[in-house]
């Protein structure tokens, strides 16, 4: 269970390594963007004589309709995108995980009620649900976070429900009851920690979806208002200048593509590395060797 074996297995998985590198790169960019952008004023200043310049040495991705450096706005937008995705997925987990634990642990109408509610949310196309929620709440970054949370939570509930149901039958969970541990104690100390691996994978994969959805909301004008450098909103602005000012839309489009790819690759890779079945068989083989070499 040591950390070293986790990292070494992650390093051996090329998919996961690539995804991990991309993710780290964008997180770092988000963290230090204001200090590294070539034109820090690009977020809010206007330079009309410079508008819609094609990519050049001075402006790697050209300039936009207001003459601001597209590359600078792209870097600044990273922060918003990751913020929205992270908090959106976080909100989804905060809603979805406890509901999944309760539904998985209990039988009867409470459990059925929670799961049917999740099914209803899943029956509506996710993007439309997000649009509807964001529309209702009004355009702002916080509302995008809430819209994401309310859209993604059923995935967490379903995952946690299924895993909890499976764990409930494990002797070590049953043994907690035999020892007299309360259900809350069992859930918090035994069930939840054993769900950590699938949850990490689910969070990572959801991040990709959240970035995509946040961009779509921004594109529709439901995200942060102008002059936010948010990528979806930038693409919406750039739409009017296509195909002549192709760089204007291409840059945020590529960024979205790479970030989403990165999260998905990392998620898939983590799934391989953290796969409970795989880990269990590793544990079993270790137990076997321990048995054989019993000191």
């Amino acid at each position: 269970m040591g950390g070293t074996s986790f990292w070494s297995r992650l390093a051996r998985d090329r998919l996961a390594t690539t995804g991990f590198a991309i993710t780290v790169l964008f997180v770092v960019i988000a963290a230090i963007a204001p200090w590294i952008v070539p034109y820090p004023e690009a977020a809010h200043e206007i330079a009309p004589m410079n508008r819609l310049r094609p990519p050049s040495e001075a402006h790697w991705f050209g300039t936009d309709r207001l003459g601001a450096d597209v590359f600078s706005r792209l870097l600044l937008g990273t922060r918003e995108t990751l913020f929205v995705a992270l908090f959106g997925v976080g909100a989804a987990a905060v809603i979805g995980v406890p509901l999944g634990l309760i539904a998985g642990w209990l039988d009867g109408w409470v459990s059925d009620g929670i799961m049917r509610l999740a099914d209803i949310f899943l029956a509506i196309p996710q993007i439309i649900l997000a649009i509807a929620i964001a529309q209702t709440l009004g355009p702002s970054l916080v509302n995008v976070v809430l819209a994401l949370g309310f859209t993604i939570w059923p995935w967490f509930t379903r995952l946690v429900f299924a895993e909890t149901r499976a764990l409930r039958r494990e002797p070590f969970i049953e043994a907690c009851a035999a020892l007299g541990a309360s259900p809350w104690r069992t859930l918090a100390l035994h069930v939840l920690p054993n769900l950590a691996s699938p949850l990490v994978v689910r969070v990572t994969l959801s991040m990709g979806f959240a970035v995509l959805t946040a961009a779509a909301l921004g594109f529709l004008g439901l995200g942060a208002p102008a002059p936010s450098p948010e990528w979806g909103r930038t693409i919406a602005e750039a739409r009017e200048y296509l195909p002549d000012a192709w760089w204007y839309a291409l840059a945020p489009g590529l960024a979205i593509f790479i970030v989403v790819m990165g999260f998905n690759m990392l998620g898939d890779g983590l799934r391989d590395v953290l796969d409970p079945k795989l880990r269990r068989s590793v544990a079993a083989s270790r137990a076997q060797s321990a048995k054989v070499q019993e000191a």
């Binding site: 002797p171 070590f172 043994a175 035999a178 007299g180 035994h190 054993n194 137990a287």
Partner: peptide, 17 residues
């Protein structure tokens, strides 16, 4: 429960991994 205890057939599986 404190006075009456149960030992599982497979104690390996009855311990949290």
């Amino acid at each position: 429960r404190r006075r009456l205890q149960y030992v599982y057939q497979d104690p390996g599986a009855s311990l949290d991994p």
